Simulated scan of single mutants.
Amino acid sequence: MSEEFITLTENTGTLRDKTIFITGASRGIGRAIALKCAADGANIVIAAKSAQPHPKLPGTIYSVAQEVENAGGKALALQVDVRDAQRVEEAMVETADKFGGIDAVVNNAGAISLTNVASTPPKRYDLMQSINSRAVYLTAHLALPYLKKSGSAHILSLCPPLNLQPKWLGPFAPYALSKFGMTILSLGLAEELREAGVSVATLWPRTLVATAAIEFAVGNREMFEQSRKPAIMADAAYEVLATKDAALTGRQLIDEELLAERGVRDFTDYAHNPANADSLTRDLFLD
């Protein structure tokens, strides 16, 4: 799938030489964010588990590192399981040693199971909590010594705005808990780090995004026809990371709304199939 990013010229070059640590960046939305920021001259850490090719899913930390270099950025490929505190800490040290610091952390790695409590095995429950909400705590906890030295630091987590309506909780409370946990931690971090000047925000897609999660975990590849490309989340994430003076801290952002604030008027080309741009499926947790 080709990337079709929109460049909003007022921010061009803002991320040059900034170091961005992205979890789950070997494919999907994480990869798209990596390439978008790389095109602006950023240093990208591809922190993901995928060191070996998968028979069904393209992309490894090394293939994305090469794409980052080709796009104009500098890359560091690190095999990281965000559940492993020691490995995450080592990755932060390796990042700072190579690039001199850390300016942003993007919590993109995720686990999903759209099952209710009765149908969710304990191992799957623990997996979602540890890869989703716990990882926001862990990456922030371990990156903060570096972020506080940045002068323009960001923590961006890909999770939904809080919505506790029963229709979202009853069918899959374990997953909802893990994603809303990311949001609650982010809101708390925004207040905790306000005086330190570290911006903390969340970002969620207005519509389904054509990724492996849609194909294998939520539905099937036919749902791509009602989805947008990962590029829309990459463009929105770039706008967050390029925003200065912590102007977005504490906000629960939606990709389309943020891009509209920044001047985007036509979203047709973001659709996986532009002919279906007016009939896309709204993402989970959005009424």
Rank of each mutant, 00 (worst) to 15 (best):
D235V: 12
Y270E: 10
T12H: 10
T7K: 08
T95Q: 01
L241I: 01
S199I: 05
I214R: 03
A77E: 07
I184V: 13
G170N: 14
N276D: 08
V264F: 03
A213M: 13
E239T: 05
I254K: 04
L241E: 00
G151L: 01
Y146M: 05
D40T: 12
S199W: 00
E225I: 01
L187D: 06
G100M: 11
R16C: 00
Q165S: 11
P230N: 15
E192R: 06
L193R: 02
P145Y: 10
R206K: 15
G151N: 02
L248D: 09
D278S: 12
N70Q: 15
N276M: 12
S50P: 07
L203G: 04
G170V: 14
T60K: 06
I155K: 03
T207W: 15
Q165I: 06
E257F: 00
P174R: 13
D255G: 09
S199H: 03
E191C: 08
A237D: 03
S119W: 04
T139V: 10
A104R: 06
G263N: 11
S119I: 02
I46H: 00
S2R: 07
F21Y: 13
L127T: 12
P121C: 10
L259D: 00
S63E: 10
H154R: 13
L76F: 09
R194F: 06
L147K: 13
T115R: 15
T19V: 09
L35D: 13
C159Q: 00
C37F: 02
F285H: 14
K98M: 09
E89H: 15
L156T: 04
Q226T: 13
T9M: 13
G263H: 14
T207K: 12
A32W: 10
A231Q: 09
A196V: 01
I232N: 02
D245S: 11
T268F: 07
L284S: 00
K244N: 01
R282I: 13
P160G: 09
L208N: 11
L286N: 07
R265I: 08
A75G: 07
E67K: 07
L76K: 06
E256M: 11
F216R: 08
L142G: 09
L286S: 04
R87K: 14
A111L: 04
F224I: 07
P174E: 14
I46Y: 01
V64A: 12
E67F: 05
G13A: 11
I61L: 01
T14Y: 00
I155Q: 02
Q79S: 14
A277V: 09
P166S: 03
G219L: 00
E94I: 00
L286C: 09
L185Y: 02
R262I: 04
A75S: 14
S152K: 14
A247W: 01
Q52C: 04
A39M: 12
H154N: 10
P53V: 02
S279T: 07
F285N: 09
A118C: 10
L78V: 13
A212M: 05
